[in-house]
Structure formats: structure tokens, C-alpha cells
Deep mutational scan, measured.
Amino acid sequence: SNREKAKQAFKELLRDKAVPSNASWEQAMKMVVTDPRYSALPKLSEKKQAFNAYKAQRE
């Protein structure tokens, strides 16, 4: 689905920018907000969900 693709793109973005798994949401956003993939997930709640999944995978 498109939403799954968007989630993957967002997680790839976090990986590409080397966002550490112990980063806070605010720290992570400063690192990725300028990338076009930041807008892949329109809802903030979805971004946070993908971010938390990313962190869980990295730990």
C-alpha cells in the first residue's frame, strides 16, 4: 500500500541521515525536516509511529 511505502521511505530517511536510536523526536526532526521524504507521511502521528518503529529496530 501507499501508506506502507511512505512508512518505509520515512524510515529510510532516518537511516540515511544516521539518526541515532536514542535521539528524541525533536532532535530527529531537526535532522530530517529539510528532506523531501519528510513529507511522505502526511500525519504527524504516522511520522512518530514510524520513528518509534525505527528506534525499536535500531536498538
Rank of each mutant, 00 (worst) to 15 (best):
S1P: 04
S1Y: 14
S1G: 14
S1F: 15
S1K: 15
S1E: 09
S1M: 06
N2Q: 14
N2F: 00
N2S: 09
N2I: 04
N2L: 02
N2V: 00
R3K: 15
R3V: 11
R3E: 12
R3N: 15
R3Q: 12
R3A: 05
E4V: 00
E4L: 09
E4R: 04
E4N: 12
E4K: 06
K5G: 10
A6M: 03
A6L: 03
A6H: 09
K7W: 13
K7E: 15
K7N: 12
K7L: 14
K7H: 14
K7Y: 13
K7C: 08
K7S: 13
Q8N: 02
Q8P: 05
Q8V: 10
Q8F: 05
A9D: 14
A9N: 08
A9K: 09
A9V: 13
F10Q: 07
F10P: 10
K11E: 13
K11Y: 10
K11R: 13
K11H: 10
K11S: 13
E12K: 04
E12F: 01
E12T: 07
E12I: 03
E12G: 04
L13M: 15
L13H: 05
L13V: 03
L13D: 08
L13E: 06
L13Q: 08
L13G: 07
L14C: 04
L14H: 03
L14G: 05
L14Y: 00
R15S: 09
R15T: 11
R15I: 12
R15W: 11
R15Y: 12
R15A: 13
D16M: 00
D16C: 00
D16G: 02
D16Y: 00
D16S: 04
K17E: 05
K17A: 11
K17G: 02
A18R: 13
A18I: 03
A18D: 14
A18T: 08
A18Q: 15
A18P: 02
V19Q: 06
V19N: 02
V19P: 04
V19K: 01
P20L: 02
P20I: 01
P20W: 00
P20Q: 05
S21E: 12
S21Y: 13
S21D: 12
S21G: 11
S21F: 14
N22E: 14
N22H: 10
N22Q: 09
N22Y: 03
N22G: 09
N22M: 02
N22T: 13
N22A: 10
A23Q: 03
A23M: 11
A23R: 03
A23W: 10
A23T: 04
A23F: 06
A23I: 11
A23D: 03
A23K: 04
S24Q: 05
S24F: 01
W25V: 08
W25S: 11
E26L: 06
E26N: 06
E26G: 08
Q27L: 04
Q27P: 03
Q27G: 06
Q27H: 12
Q27E: 15
Q27V: 07
A28M: 02
A28V: 08
A28T: 07
A28C: 08
A28Q: 07
A28K: 03
A28S: 05
M29S: 11
M29W: 04
M29K: 15
M29A: 11
M29C: 09
K30Q: 12
K30W: 00
K30M: 08
M31R: 08
M31F: 02
M31Y: 07
V32P: 05
V32I: 15
V32K: 10
V32R: 02
V32E: 10
V33C: 15
V33L: 11
V33G: 14
V33K: 15
V33Y: 08
V33F: 09
T34D: 14
T34S: 13
D35L: 00
D35K: 00
D35N: 05
P36F: 07
P36L: 02
R37G: 02
R37A: 09
R37V: 03
R37T: 01
R37L: 02
R37W: 00
R37S: 04
Y38F: 13
Y38W: 12
Y38N: 04
Y38Q: 08
S39T: 11
S39P: 03
A40R: 07
A40D: 01
A40F: 14
L41S: 03
L41D: 05
L41H: 01
L41E: 10
L41Y: 07
P42V: 05
P42R: 07
P42L: 08
P42I: 08
P42W: 02
K43P: 06
K43R: 12
K43A: 13
K43G: 13
K43D: 15
L44I: 11
L44P: 08
L44H: 01
S45Y: 00
S45M: 05
S45G: 08
E46Y: 01
E46C: 03
E46L: 01
E46N: 03
E46G: 01
E46Q: 10
K47S: 04
K47N: 01
K47G: 07
K47M: 04
K47F: 07
K48Q: 10
K48G: 01
K48M: 13
K48N: 03
K48L: 15
K48S: 06
K48E: 07
Q49A: 15
Q49D: 14
Q49M: 07
Q49R: 11
Q49L: 06
Q49G: 07
A50G: 04
A50T: 05
A50Y: 00
A50W: 02
A50K: 01
A50L: 12
A50Q: 09
A50M: 12
F51G: 08
N52S: 12
N52M: 14
N52E: 15
N52H: 12
N52P: 06
N52I: 14
N52V: 11
N52L: 13
A53C: 10
A53I: 06
A53E: 15
A53D: 14
A53L: 07
Y54R: 00
Y54L: 12
Y54N: 04
K55V: 11
K55Y: 02
K55H: 08
K55F: 01
A56L: 14
A56V: 12
Q57C: 10
Q57N: 10
Q57M: 07
Q57T: 10
Q57H: 10
R58S: 13
R58W: 14
R58E: 15
R58N: 09
E59P: 05
E59K: 14
E59S: 05
E59Q: 13
E59N: 04
E59I: 12
